[in-house]
Structures are given as structure tokens and as C-alpha cells.
């Protein structure tokens, strides 16, 4: 069974960490991941940019583009895509295509700070 682990924290606090605090956390996380990478159990991991870099596409007959993260709590996170786009317009176009065939809800579009492909091999 493949599992996703979704990371939540208070953004303001994380962005108030000192460089040393930040480095310590990153080093500790990489140390934890090391053995699972060697065992080819860990797939792609990503660090998202802050929510201030996010744009939200609210789906509907005329999809609405909103600044900022998806803030509603009525819907639940059901999945995600990683897409390589030259700019926001290109990824928005892809999200609109997806939205046209999958109505309801919204897509939050958040650029990545870092992406690690991992070592997981899928059949």
C-alpha cells in the first residue's frame, strides 16, 4: 500500500525560524529519510512555497481564479498533481482542463520550493 503523508504546521512560525533552526530541522528530516531512501521505500517529496505564492482555481461553469491558498474547510484534500509549467498561466490552463471534466471543489496551485524524486520503484 502506498501512503501519502501530508505536512501541516503554522506557516508564520516556520518562517520565523532562524537559519540554524531551519537547517537543524532539514538535517534531522534528511537523516530520518536516509534509510527509507536506501530501501527504495520513499517516493517523491516536496517542500511547498509559502501560501502567499498560492493561487486558487475555484471550479464551476466559469472557473474563478483567486489569490492565496484554498481556505475553506468544508471540502477535504483528495489528491494532488505535480506539473512542470513555464509560468502560472500554463499551470492554470492545465487545472482548467482538469476542472472541466471533474466538477466541484477547487484546485490550489502552489509552486514548489524543492522537489526530490525519491527512490520508489513502481511496477
Amino acid at each position: 500500500m502506498l501512503y501519502a503523508i501530508l505536512c501541516y504546521n503554522t506557516e508564520n512560525t516556520v518562517f520565523s525560524w532562524s537559519k540554524e533552526q531551519e537547517q537543524k530541522v532539514m538535517d534531522d528530516l534528511h537523516a530520518v529519510q536516509e534509510k527509507h531512501l536506501k530501501a527504495k521505500k520513499l517516493g517523491p517529496t516536496a517542500r511547498l512555497m509559502p501560501t502567499t505564492a498560492a493561487t486558487t482555481l475555484r471550479k464551476g461553469d466559469t472557473p474563478l481564479v483567486l489569490d492565496g491558498p484554498y481556505a475553506e474547510t468544508r471540502e477535504q484534500l483528495l489528491g494532488f498533481y505535480i506539473f512542470d509549467a513555464a509560468n502560472l498561466e500554463e499551470v492554470l490552463a492545465f487545472a482548467r482542463e482538469l476542472g472541466a471534466v471533474n466538477p466541484g471543489g477547487a484546485y490550489e496551485i502552489r509552486p514548489l520550493h524543492a522537489f526530490y524524486p525519491g527512490t520508489l520503484e513502481t511496477a
Binding site: M49, L88, P111
Partner: peptide, 16 residues
């Protein structure tokens, strides 16, 4: 390049 990436993402948003 992490800071550059965030800067570029913000400009994309602003241009809209």
C-alpha cells in the same frame, strides 16, 4: 534559486 523561484511565482500572480 529558491528565493528567485518564489519571486518569479509572485510576479506571475501580480501580472494577472
Amino acid at each position: 534559486h529558491r528565493a528567485i523561484g518564489e519571486g518569479l511565482a509572485l510576479i506571475d500572480k501580480a501580472i494577472r
